[in-house]
Amino acid sequence: MDFLSLPKRTSGNRTFGLTSVVDFGTPLGELKNILADYSHIIDIAKLGIGSAYVTPNINKKVQLYQEYNVKPYCGGTLFEKSYFQNKIPEYLSYLRNLGIEWIEVSNGTLEIPLRERLQIISELKEEFHVIAEVGSKDADKEMPISEWREEINLLLNAGCKYVITEGRDSGTSGIYEKCGTIKTDLIQELLQDIDPNKIIFEAPSSKHQMYFIKEIGPNVNLGNVKIIDVLILEAQRLGLRSETFYLEDIECNLL
C-alpha cells in the first residue's frame, strides 16, 4: 500500500534514471536470487574489468540477465585488451555468440586516440548499442574541463547511446580526486552544456551517489553500483535516507 509522497521515478525500459551495476563474479545462483527481487531497479549490468572472459557459465549468466530485462555488457578493459592485441574482430564475434548487444569503447588504460575511437564507434553503432567512457583510470592524469566537454559531445554525436564518466570502482580517479572527493567544478561545468540523461556517472559509494541525486535528481544515471547495493540506492533516490530526505515530490528530470 502506497501512502507516502515520494519523488517520481522512471520505470520499465528506462532511457534515463538508470542504475548500472558492476558484476565482479557474482555466482549464478546468487545472481538469480538478486534478480528475482531487484531486477526492476537494475537496468544495465557491466561484467567488470575483463572478468567475462574467465567467467564460468558466461552464456548462462548473460541469458539470466536478459531474462530479467537487464542489459549485460563487458567492461571496457576487455575491449582495450582486444584492441591492444589486434583482436577486435574476434571480440565482436565473441559478443555475437553470447548474444550481447551492448559494447563499451573505452580508453581508461590505453591511450587510444579520440579520432580512432570515433571511427570505431561509427562502425559499431550499426550493430551494437555503444557506450563510451571518458577519463583515465590513472589518478595522476588530469584532463582540462574543456577536453571533457568536447570529448563527451563528440562521442555522443558519433552515435553513442551514453557516455560514462570514469570513476573506477574505488571512486579515486576520473571525476574523483585520489582521496575520493568529487570534482564538483568539473561536474558543474559539464551539466551546463550536456544533457545529464546521456551521461552515466560512475558512483561506487553511497556518498558519491547521494551527491549526484541531490545535484541532478532521483533520475540521474549512475554506474559502477555494487550489485548488493541496488536497494539502498533506490531508497536514496526516493528520499528514504537522511541525506536525501527532503527531495521534493516532483517529476524530477522526467523530460
Rank of each mutant, 00 (worst) to 15 (best):
I216E: 05
Q192Y: 03
R237H: 01
S205C: 05
G180P: 10
Q236P: 05
F245L: 15
L247F: 04
Q192F: 08
I228G: 09
T165Q: 04
L240K: 07
G223M: 07
S242C: 08
V225C: 12
K178E: 14
I232K: 09
I175R: 03
E248P: 02
E215C: 10
E243G: 03
V163A: 00
L222W: 01
C179N: 12
R168C: 02
E251P: 01
T181H: 12
L240A: 07
Q209S: 15
P196W: 00
Y211C: 12
V230W: 07
I228H: 11
N253K: 01
R241V: 08
I213Y: 01
K178G: 09
L191S: 03
Y176S: 09
L222P: 09
G174F: 08
G223D: 06
L254R: 08
Q188T: 09
L238A: 14
G217A: 07
E243Y: 01
D185W: 04
S242T: 14
I194K: 01
E248D: 07
C252F: 08
I187H: 00
I187S: 00
C160K: 12
S170R: 12
I182K: 03
Y246K: 15
L231H: 09
I175V: 11
G180V: 11
N221A: 08
F201T: 09
F201H: 11
S206R: 14
F245W: 14
N253R: 03
P204F: 10
L238Q: 15
G217R: 03
E177A: 09
V225H: 14
C179M: 04
G174H: 05
D193S: 12
H208Q: 09
T184Q: 11
G239V: 04
D229R: 03
I200F: 08
Y162E: 03
T244A: 13
G174A: 02
P204D: 15
Y211M: 13
L186G: 04
L233K: 07
N253F: 04
Q192V: 13
L240C: 11
K214H: 14
L247Q: 05
L247D: 06
M210A: 14
